[in-house]
């Protein structure tokens, strides 16, 4: 049998064995539930009455008639775009600042990263206090002579608040990844450019950006996907209000399924959410060839 177990066959077996736990786990805890969600979405499910009946695609046609859906998708888009843009640019800015030859960058690095390790619910509870009309933020603004808005009660300011709270909480992660990428850019590239008389901005655009573009791709995918999964922050800070200005898709899904007891319709929204996330990721992945350096 020695001839049967060639190095190649043994590798194949090893490969399957190595990925087996992950694959079995994904099948059981990702794909079976996903199929179940699709299955539920074809049903009217009244939890309280204990009824579960097949209704075909009615839940999907209800999507078209749901007057709340457009505002929810709008809020979701605004939130995601705002979060990704602010998070990535702030992370990059911080990384560039910390990449300067300055004393004490380690200290500031620790500071900017620290919210990442604070428990999410604790962090959100604190900001809920700070963002009150008579809370800490407006107190600080007041000292500076500015009359702060009622953050969590205005449509726009509430959305901005949620984005800001989420950004400050997590920007440290992206910052560290950018910082590592920046430090990985070979110094001689900059030297050569300097010799050629390139300005700081040109160097940043022509050398730094392309060199760290794989990191930008990765962080943007993770941040986009993460932005579509924000739940606890909304639940604690605004409960989707005022109006529906901060009701993002995940929160709406939770409301429909768990609060309004429309499990079938909630499942339909889950399918919609999954479709959006998948589509966005495919688009980002396709676009990488256009601008990610290593892929060219």
């Amino acid at each position: 049998m020695k001839t049967f177990w060639t190095a190649r066959r043994r590798d194949t077996l090893a490969g399957y064995l190595f990925v087996a736990p992950q694959l079995a786990g994904s099948a059981l805890f990702v794909f079976v539930p996903l199929v179940l969600v699709v299955y539920y979405s074809l049903h009217e499910w009244n939890v309280l009455a204990g009824t579960f009946s097949f209704i075909g695609f009615s839940n999907y046609s209800a999507l078209a008639e749901d007057a709340n859906l457009m505002p929810v998708l709008r809020a979701t888009a605004l939130f995601s775009v705002g979060l990704v843009a602010i998070n990535l640019s702030l992370a990059l800015l911080l990384a560039v600042l910390l990449n300067q030859r300055l004393r004490g960058t380690a200290f500031f690095r620790t500071v900017f990263f620290s919210p990442v390790v604070v428990s999410l619910v604790a962090w959100t509870i604190v900001w809920q206090f700070l963002l009150q009309d008579n809370g800490g933020i407006n107190g600080a603004l007041d000292m500076a002579g500015v009359d702060g808005p009622n953050w969590l009660r205005g449509d726009t300011t509430a959305l901005i608040s949620v984005i800001a709270v989420q950004t400050v909480k997590n920007v440290g992660l992206n910052m560290v990844l950018f910082l590592a990428a920046l430090q990985g850019v070979p110094a001689d590239l900059y030297e050569a450019a300097r010799v050629d008389g390139a300005s700081a901005w040109t160097r940043f655009r022509r050398i730094t950006m392309p060199m760290i573009s794989p990191t930008i791709l990765l962080t943007s995918i993770i941040t986009v996907v993460g932005s579509l999964q924000v739940f606890a922050q909304i639940a604690v800070l605004t409960q989707g209000g005022p109006g529906t200005s901060t009701t993002v898709l995940v929160y709406y899904l939770y409301q429909q399924a768990f609060q309004f007891h429309h499990f079938g319709y909630g499942a339909t929204l889950s399918v919609l959410l999954f479709g959006i996330v998948a589509a966005l990721t495919v688009v980002q992945w396709q676009m990488r060839r256009r601008w990610v350096f290593h892929e060219q």
């Binding site: 179940l36 999964q229 739940f231």
Partner: peptide, 19 residues
Amino acid sequence: VVLTGLLIPSEVTIVPLFQ
């Protein structure tokens, strides 16, 4: 196939998981 797991918010699958 495994990567798609990255794209699924836990809210999506919580009801079937509970079941």
